[in-house]
């Protein structure tokens, strides 16, 4: 139970970063932290004690394995997170080139 709460505290750190920081790069970092926490939470939900990774070996009988379905889901999630991060960074660099700052309170002019 403590593990789940620690994982959600990591999520809250990311949420604080997204809500309270004014730098675009900091906001991207906060979104990344939230994604990490959610992935870890899903994997924790599929974990079983005293079990093996879901890979069969040649000469071994494996009694207990962890749940393979959350791992397959999280695999998709990591890829989507990378795509979102890349597009956000491209937009942030474009904004920096146009306005000369990363501060989101100064990006309110309809310029150009």
């Amino acid at each position: 139970m403590v593990t789940y709460i620690l994982c959600l505290m990591l999520f809250c750190v990311g949420l604080y970063c997204v809500l309270r920081k004014r730098n675009l790069i900091k906001i991207i970092i906060g979104i990344g932290i939230m994604g990490y926490a959610v992935n870890l939470f899903i994997i924790l939900a599929g974990y079983r004690a005293q079990s093996r990774a879901p890979i069969y070996a040649n000469d071994q009988i494996v009694a207990r394995m962890v749940d393979p379905l959350p791992q397959a889901m999280v695999m998709t999630s990591i890829v989507l997170e990378l795509s979102v991060t890349l597009i956000l960074i491209a937009i942030a660099i474009r904004i920096y080139e146009k306005y000369g700052t990363f501060d989101i309170t100064k990006i309110n002019k309809l310029k150009g």
Binding site: G32, Q71, I78, V79, L82, T85, I89, A92
Partner: peptide, 25 residues
Amino acid sequence: LKAPDLAIMQLVVEIMSLVILVRAT
């Protein structure tokens, strides 16, 4: 947590996004 696929994937994705973030900053 017994997910070696995800460990490899997270490592390489982290390095990739780190390189691009360093380029952005």
